[in-house]
Design a protein around this nucleic acid. Structure first.
Lengths: 113, 113
DNA sequence: TTTGAATACATAAGAACAATAGGTATTATT
DNA sequence: AATAATACCTATTGTTCTTATGTATTCAAA
């Protein structure tokens, strides 16, 4: 588990990109998939995830589709076209940022040497 | 310039690692060096930097050495042994986190294929 | 020469984000 | 029968950074 601050700017990116990769997902599924894919290194808390999903929906990046599984409900989230664009741009921005920071932290690793 | 959230968990790491690389630095110098090394992509605001430096000092990771340059003062910061360790561990943690997120965002880039 | 930019420190108020902690309810396992 | 897992949710709190503001010196340009 990483120091919690690292996730802060990245959670949106993770959620949108996961949806871009896996299509339709529901909230709990996102937490499980993240835990599984990262070997427990990244664990999304529900207190962070659900409000974020609601926000992304309000911002027009996601649409929902609520289904009943027995007596329990699931809210499936799906990217809108805007969400798809956002997923790509955030992902690219993250990659660019990381490159920049890595260079800053260790200039000897500069590319194009 | 990146979306501001990305920097959130990384500022400590940047500051400590810069000091580890360049030895003694003063606050303003850190902002300039960062701007210079990143081509203006990362700009540290003073409202974030100075309180952080004070905090890192209070936590025992930095020591200061105030010098007078004419009538103006400079507070030089230097890593303690603990600060040196912290710089390394945060830097490693960041690299590990990035690897994990990159894999999560794009599983096709997985290593050891 | 005086005005503005750059240098150099600092703090306070506010926004944004995620963690923690709580809540409800169903289903599966032991 | 009890516990864990599933599945949703919100409120409070802490941390972090931004924005805004303040002080003061030094340098460059008009």
């Amino acid at each position: 588990m990483y120091s919690k601050e690292l996730l802060k700017g990245t959670l949106r990116t993770i959620v949108l990109k996961l949806l871009a990769e896996h299509g339709t997902m529901y909230g709990y599924e996102i937490t499980q998939k993240t835990k599984e894919l990262t070997g427990g290194k990244i664990v999304l808390t529900e207190g962070a995830l659900y409000p974020l999903l609601h926000k992304l929906e309000a911002e027009g990046y996601l649409v929902t589709n609520t289904q009943s599984i027995g007596k329990r409900i699931r809210k499936y989230y799906e990217l809108t076209p805007e969400g798809d664009e956002k997923a790509i741009s955030l992902s690219n921005e993250f990659a660019d940022f990381v490159q920049t920071v890595i260079y800053l932290l260790n200039p000897s690793l500069a590319p194009k040497t």
